[in-house]
Amino acid sequence: MSTAASVAGRRRAGLAAPAILCIAFFMGGPMCIMVFVSLVERAPDGGVIWGNFTTDAYKQFLFEENLLGETTLNADYLRIYLRSALLAGFTVLATLIVGFPTAMYIAMQHPRRRALLIFFLSLPFWVNLLVRNYAWLLLLRANGLLDQAAMALRLTSEPLNILYSNTAIAIGLTYSFLPLMVLPIYAAMEKFDFSLVEAAFDLGASRWQALMHVIVPGVKGGIVAGCLLVFIPGLGSYVTPVLLGGSKSLMIGNLIETQFAAARNWPFGAALAFVLLMMVMAAALLRAALLRKSRRAKSSNP
């Protein structure tokens, strides 16, 4: 029996193997090479000198030489990373605030209506990212359509000047990633048993209490997945800061790109990408820890 099971297990592992190998080769390979490149010397005109190992790229991330040749701390890159993380965090918050009620609303509809609502929710997501950003450019620009509408309604007499600011980036990112937040929460809510909420009301819970103590814990997995799905692309966003932010402050994605373009410093670009990857991994680990904690809480308190 045990041998039969292990043969079946091996056969099934064989089915999964092509996908695993494909990802291991085409994702794992590049990631290893990238780490390798970040640890070698750069060639003066782009590219790298393969044999010469150095940690210059990582030193450059934190330190610089001042005029006297002394090494001092350089916070420029850290600031750029911090700003990107804050912006991604804000996007997570905004999509959560808008997306959670939406997901709840959809989950409480008749199943046929649900499918339709989900379809219309994800439709804009299938429009090219460039196009979505570009549409907001048309809306937000000075004397653009939003300004014209606001002035026609006499809400304001001056242009709002939203475009080319961090606000514009946040609006664009929130718009782009909203479905990534709604879909996982919705998926969790679809399985959620809403009679529990009624039970909570019967026990005298307020709406807020029912929400925080019954619904939110029940769909926690969906919320965490949604947050992660929004946070990661938000952190690496490249197009939105250029188009809507007016490029006045660099984000991680743009910083990495310039290392491969104008600066021709591949090892530094690879090192920057590696640091970004570590940030993402940290977020993913945090998620795993949260899930484990909630599972343990559940099992100890059935």
């Binding site: 610089e64 916070a75 420029d76 890159y77 600031r79 750029i80 490029s247 006045k248 402050s249 660099l250 910083l255 310039t258 290392q259 104008a262 600066a263 021709r264 410093n265």
Partner: peptide, 14 residues
């Protein structure tokens, strides 16, 4: 010179 230029550009937009 390119490195100096890139550092200035980054600092300008930090």
């Amino acid at each position: 010179a390119r490195d100096l230029r890139n550092r200035i550009w980054t600092r300008l937009k930090k």
